[in-house]
Amino acid sequence: MFNFLANPARFNQVTDRLMPATAGLAGLFLSIGIISALIISPPDYQQGDTVRIMYVHVPSAWMALFIYSFIAITSAIGLIWRHPFAHLSAQAAAPIGITFTILCLTTGSLWGKPMWGAWWVWDARLTSVLFLFFLYLGFMALNKAFDDPSRGEKSAAILALVGFINVPVIKFSVDWWNTLHQPASLLRADGPAIHSSMLTPLFLMALGFIFVAVCVLVTRIKVLLLKRRIRLMRINGGKLRS
């Protein structure tokens, strides 16, 4: 699939056809999700209405981790198979990942203040997510740090791979150490600890986030493909006629 999509003309052709449906699904899931999250779903027995922050906070956190994993995998493919399209996808995904990380941190802070009594604490979960934010930042900076883009790609990919260790640390931080953040509610041994009426908006929002991320990822890959083409045209001057 990677080789199939790596051809820019084919990539544009396939994605142009799928884009309206993906964007439509994103809009659909997000609008139903928001109605479900803010109006239909019940308040929590302990946290009251603040539980509604969960429906943006938790999907953001999932996306932040998911996109980082995507970057790590595509970086590995780029390093091992020397596939330029892999590096390009990783580079396109980074701004999306950092946005979701920022959303996760800010909504978490807005949730922490009324429930815990603090905007921020330095427990293992919060600190490791903040570290994820800096990894994204470093990845994006390294990509631009060299005059030769292929060197930037390579060093950023190495950082992404080394930083991948942080992903399981984030996931299991709440189990390994005493944290103020509560343990996992969904992916745990005894099954979800969230009532079904609250799982519905959570999954709807998560689906909406995924489809939005796909739309933005495709758009950003197109941007990077165009940039690469423009760069090549400029280097080759008038020689490249297409």
Binding site: P42, P43, D44, Y45, Q46, Q47, V51, M54, M115, W116, Q182, P183, A184, S185, R188, A193, I194, H195, S197, M198
Partner: peptide
Amino acid sequence: HDENYMPP
């Protein structure tokens, strides 16, 4: 708070 979420 703990990891349980449910309506009152």
